[in-house]
C-alpha cells in the first residue's frame, strides 16, 4: 500500500506532501550521502559488472511540487523537461561544485547499481518530493560502436539526451525497472559522448538506472566514464 491516507484528493495529497517535506527538518538522522555515494575520483571509472553507469554529475533538486505522479503525461513531461528549461548551457558539461540558480552540481559515484536521487536530496537536506533532477555524465568510447541502445529506468518520469539528441522518454506514473525503456539504435562515436537526463517526481522515491546494450542485448562495459 503506497499511502494509507484515504482521500485521494488533490488537496489532501498536497497537504501530505507538505507534511513529508516538513519531516526533513531533522537532518542527520537520515542516511548520510556517503551511504549511497562517494565523491567522484579524478581517474575515469567504468560501468559496473552489469554495465550500469554509476558516475554522474547531479544537480541539487529543483522544487517542482506535484501531488501525484499521474500528471506526468507525455505532454507535461516534454514541456517541463526540455533543453529550454535546463538550468545553464545545455551544450556544456557542468563542473563539480558549479552553481546555477543557487543550486550546486555534485560529481558523485553511486555505490549502488542505480542512482538514488531521493537519498541524494535527502542527505543534502533538500526537497525530496515534488522535485526535478538533472543528471549529466560523459563516456569515453574506445572505438565507434553501432547498433547500441541506451537502456534506462526511472522513478518517476524522465527524458534522456545522447550527444544532444533526445533518445528516450519515460512518462506517466512509473517506478524504476532496469531496462525499462530502450532507445532506438545509436552509434557511440569514438571518444567523448555526453548523456543528459532529467527526472521528475511527485510523491515517489526518485532514482534511475542507465546502461548501454550492444546489438545482442548484452551490456557494454568497455567504456571510460569521466565527467570532467
Amino acid at each position: 500500500m503506497i499511502t494509507k491516507w484515504t482521500a485521494a484528493s488533490i488537496v489532501t495529497t498536497a497537504l501530505a506532501l507538505w507534511a513529508v517535506n516538513a519531516d526533513a527538518r531533522e537532518p542527520g538522522q537520515y542516511p548520510p550521502l556517503s551511504d549511497y555515494f562517494s565523491a567522484a575520483t579524478a581517474a575515469p571509472t567504468t560501468p559496473d559488472a552489469d554495465g550500469f553507469i554509476t558516475r554522474w554529475l547531479l544537480l541539487e533538486p529543483i522544487s517542482k511540487p506535484n501531488p501525484t505522479n499521474t500528471v506526468f503525461t507525455r505532454s507535461y513531461v516534454r514541456e517541463e523537461l526540455t533543453p529550454a528549461t535546463y538550468p545553464g548551457d545545455f551544450t556544456a558539461v557542468p563542473r563539480d561544485g558549479q552553481r546555477v540558480n543557487g543550486l550546486r552540481w555534485h560529481a558523485l559515484d553511486s555505490r549502488l547499481w542505480d542512482v538514488k536521487l531521493f537519498n541524494f536530496a535527502q542527505a543534502l537536506d533538500k526537497p525530496k518530493y515534488g522535485v526535478l533532477f538533472w543528471a549529466v555524465t560523459v563516456i569515453d568510447v574506445p572505438e565507434e560502436m553501432d547498433g547500441v541502445r541506451l537502456a534506462v529506468g526511472s522513478n518517476s518520469a524522465s527524458r534522456w539526451w545522447f550527444n544532444g539528441e533526445e533518445v528516450a522518454g519515460l512518462y506517466d506514473d512509473r517506478r524504476m525497472v532496469m531496462d525499462d525503456v530502450l532507445s532506438d539504435r545509436l552509434t557511440l562515436k569514438a571518444g567523448r559522448n555526453v548523456i543528459r537526463g532529467a527526472i521528475i517526481n511527485g510523491p515517489g522515491l526518485s532514482d534511475f538506472c542507465l546502461r548501454f546494450l550492444d546489438a545482442d542485448g548484452q551490456p557494454i562495459r568497455n567504456l571510460a566514464i569521466d565527467i570532467k
Binding site: T3, W5, A8, T70, D173, R175
Partner: peptide, 12 residues
Amino acid sequence: THGTCCDGPNST
C-alpha cells in the same frame, strides 16, 4: 503490487 493506489479509477 506495482503502481500507485488510492486514487480511484486513476490508481495504477
